[in-house]
Amino acid sequence: MKKLARDPQIVWRNEKRREEEILAALERGEDVGDRGSVILIVGGTMHQLNLVGGYIWNLCDGSRSLDDVVETLASEFDVHDEVLRHDVEAFVNDLVGRGWLRYA
């Protein structure tokens, strides 16, 4: 199965302190969907990925297929498998459509 890889031209990094804050907010039951933990610059424009998006982005290092990514996340999140697969697939398809990720 094809592996998912990030566009090497995209400059990005994990915001470690922000991620800690988001995890703490999550523990408190707050909505963290709009809070970014990964920052990237594409074509001169800055973007943020939220916590789950950031996890997926980090996993797409060219060594994992979509199934591998779903499997890895399933071990970390208490979400129904089908729901998780649907959400991950939608996110990955969006980024593949933007050219930020590709199947290699």
Partner: peptide, 11 residues
Amino acid sequence: MRLDLLDTPLR
């Protein structure tokens, strides 16, 4: 887009 407070600067 308003950026959250970053850990360190980018530029």
